[in-house]
Design a protein around this nucleic acid. Structure first.
Lengths: 154, 154
DNA sequence: CTCTATGTTGGACAGGTGTCCAGTCAAGTG
DNA sequence: CACTTGACTGGACACCTGTCCAACATAGAG
């Protein structure tokens, strides 16, 4: 997949593509961000904090798994350092954090949010490397959430 | 940094460089692996499991932080898919897991190891993205280890 | 000494990225 | 109608990666 073939499919010249896209990385980041922003939030109002967190994570993983190739492509892309990629990276990270905080309810414990964020990033990384499928990712994260949340219900 | 300039500095032709290196990604992965393999292990025999784990993590972070540019470069490199990168990626991951298991002592709980592995990968990723310095990484991981290990001492 | 194996080299190549710019085209403005 | 504005275009460019190959050096074996 080259920027030029993307431009061609879009019926547009490469030069035009580059007026909208700073880079190939930016393209992937933008697509991923739009996909993410459009996902529904897990509801899971009736359950323990652990259950709510597991529901939030499952919902995220499921949404991301809808477009596995996009998820794979975005992982290296987000490591780029165009200003546009920087912007989207922050937004995407904030999106994750927001969901985790919501699952934790009022006064979320910062180290807890941190642990979830790092574990989730790590899972995305490992899936992006092909070390896990997204189905495995869901299962492993379920157990990991249980470990992290241990002693935090009520 | 191009493969050709590296070859030149090494006093060798680009063609020769490519007889030893499958790719630029392979170069970074190999350097990182060697650096990692040469690091000493944290001792920390006298303490709780949490303290041993924190010591293991601090030791790893400190070792990695010795070569911050290498650490930054290796993150995208490990996402490549040359066979050589695959090999080194597995070795590097196994190295982390081994250290975490050692810190946990006999019969390490698999979900615990999993949680540590994902959180640590996530931290490396975020540092690689420039979202954290390595000093911040050490502090955040300390708190995260405490959360993950909660209720696992003795 | 000759021959062979091994490592090295220059140079070309196909493909990719991101940049630049002069020129075209269509739509809207006065 | 003439003009301006903005989006688009073709085509060139510099630079990078990874591949290939014929040619060369050189050390050691017979």
């Amino acid at each position: 997949m080259t920027v030029r073939t993307v431009a061609q499919r879009a019926g547009v010249s490469p030069a035009t593509a580059y007026t909208y896209l700073a880079s190939k990385n930016h393209l992937f980041a933008e697509l991923f961000w739009r996909h993410l922003a459009q996902l529904g939030r897990a509801d899971g109002a009736g359950g323990s904090a652990t259950e709510r967190m597991q529901a939030a994570v499952r919902s995220l993983v499921q949404g991301i798994a809808e477009e596995p190739e996009l998820a794979t492509a975005v992982t290296p892309a987000l490591l780029g350092n165009d200003p546009d990629v920087d912007r989207l990276r922050l937004r995407i990270g904030a999106q994750f954090v927001t969901r985790f905080e919501a699952a934790l309810g009022d006064a979320p414990d910062p180290p807890l949010v941190d642990a979830m964020t790092l574990a989730f990033s790590g899972a995305l990384l490992q899936a992006g490397m092909g070390l896990m499928t997204y189905a495995e990712m869901a299962d492993r994260l379920d157990a990991v959430v249980a470990v992290i949340m241990r002693g935090n219900d009520r």
